[in-house]
Each structure stands twice: as C-alpha cells, then as structure tokens.
C-alpha cells in the first residue's frame, strides 16, 4: 500500500478543524468565543480548499481555489472586525442599561 498523499492529510485536517469551529459557534454562548470559533472554522474551510487544489500529484496546483481563498480570507477578516466592533459598542453602552 502506498502512502497517502500529504494533501489528503491536510484536507482531512481541514475538515475536522472546520467541524470543531462550527461546533464552537453553535455550542458556545459567549460572543468573543464564538467569533474566535468562526475564525477557526474559516481556517479549516480554507485549508480544505487549498488541499483540494493540490489533488493532482504532478504539475502546479490549481490557482482558481487559491484566488477563492484569498477572497475568503478578506471576507472573514472584514466580518470579524465588524462583529468585534459591534460587540465593543454593546459593551461600552452597557453601563446603566439592562443587559438582556
């Protein structure tokens, strides 16, 4: 039996990382932790896509998924920043208000 290719290992790692992140978002209640979880999930999805781009054993990797991930990274960081700013705004307004 030949060794499984490295890219497959990373693809599987990507699957499990995204699943772990997804679980964090769904099962946690604290917002900061959910945001960190969403970022872990994002990394997992991107890792899976990069690994899939390297499926062909020879030749260069597929540049189209690479472009997709470059875009995805920017979307993820934008959403993260926006959520953190919203969270901070809520925190700053907390004084004297009911937190429900």
């Amino acid at each position: 039996m030949s060794l499984p290719p490295g890219a497959l290992l990373y693809a599987l790692a990507g699957v499990w990382i995204s699943v772990i992140g997804l679980r964090g978002v769904l099962a946690e209640e604290e917002w900061f932790r959910r945001i960190v979880s969403a970022n872990v999930m994002g990394s997992g999805v991107f890792l899976l896509l990069v690994a899939l781009a390297r499926r062909a054993p020879d030749g260069p990797p597929d540049p189209v998924p690479h472009g997709m991930i470059l875009t995805g990274l920017v979307v993820a960081v934008s959403a993260t920043a926006l959520m953190l700013a919203l969270l901070g705004f809520l925190h700053d307004q907390q004084d004297g208000e009911d937190d429900t």
């Binding site: 990394s43 991107f46 991930i69 920017v74």
Partner: peptide, 23 residues
Amino acid sequence: RIDAPDLALTEAAIGSGVTGALL
C-alpha cells in the same frame, strides 16, 4: 507544504496577524 506560497503569506499576514491584532 501544499504549494500555496501566495496564500501562506496572506494567511500569516491577515489570518494570523491582522485578525489577532483585531481580537
């Protein structure tokens, strides 16, 4: 390791660096 140096650079800069700084 899986031949995506463009992305590795971006991930280090944005995924790790900028996101970490924001957090």
